[in-house]
């Protein structure tokens, strides 16, 4: 038997690995930047969880903020909540979008775990979420003082993520 034949499995494996690697690379490039970055925040007119008043897109403008999409049914949001509280203490403006959720449940949640949000927009049907291209909670958007979306993070915010996101946020201010 030829020694070279014994390399066949290794070569096949290496080729498979290469296909995976290239494939994952392509996927990374196309999917990560959100098509919304650099665009104005979508139009909305929604009620506020805390007091029921109605707000529109204009109310977002004025100063940079984090827009955090969350829900009481989402376990990762619970994990992320403590860190949001920390950020709020540092004086960072966070606006919540309570996504596909029940207002009463949301109020209980905020009472139980603390409220890091300037206010929470109630999006029970997920219409604003659809506009924003939200796939699931939590997701966080960075908007500047003109209400233009500057950044996006899918998944929970934590100190590691905040290292780069926070830098970007600091530059906006």
């Amino acid at each position: 038997m030829n020694r070279l034949l014994l390399f066949i499995p290794l070569v096949i494996f290496a080729l498979m690995g290469l296909v995976f690697w290239v494939g994952l690379g392509i996927e990374d490039k196309t999917s990560l930047p959100s098509p919304l970055i650099g665009k104005p925040f979508p139009e909305f007119e929604l009620g506020v969880v805390e007091d029921g008043r109605t707000l529109t897109t204009k109310d977002l403008q004025g100063q940079p903020a984090l827009v955090n999409v969350w829900a009481t049914w989402c376990p990762t949001c619970k994990a992320e909540h403590a860190f949001l509280n920390e950020l709020a203490e540092q004086g960072i403006r966070i606006i919540g979008i309570n996504y596909k959720d029940d207002v009463m449940k949301a109020r209980d949640w905020l009472k139980a775990y603390g409220n890091p949000y300037a206010y929470n927009l109630s999006d029970p049907q997920g219409k604003l979420g659809l506009e924003l291209g939200v796939y699931g909670a939590p997701e966080t958007f960075l908007i500047d003082s003109e209400g233009i979306i500057r950044g996006k993070h899918i998944g929970d915010l934590n100190p590691v993520v905040w290292e780069s996101l926070g830098k970007q946020f600091g530059e906006m201010q």
Partner: peptide, 17 residues
């Protein structure tokens, strides 16, 4: 409930773009 079928995700993204 946290999970969106990946195909649906892609479809939404596509339509959005």
């Amino acid at each position: 409930e946290n999970y969106m079928p990946p195909e649906v995700q892609a479809a939404l993204e596509q339509a959005h773009q």
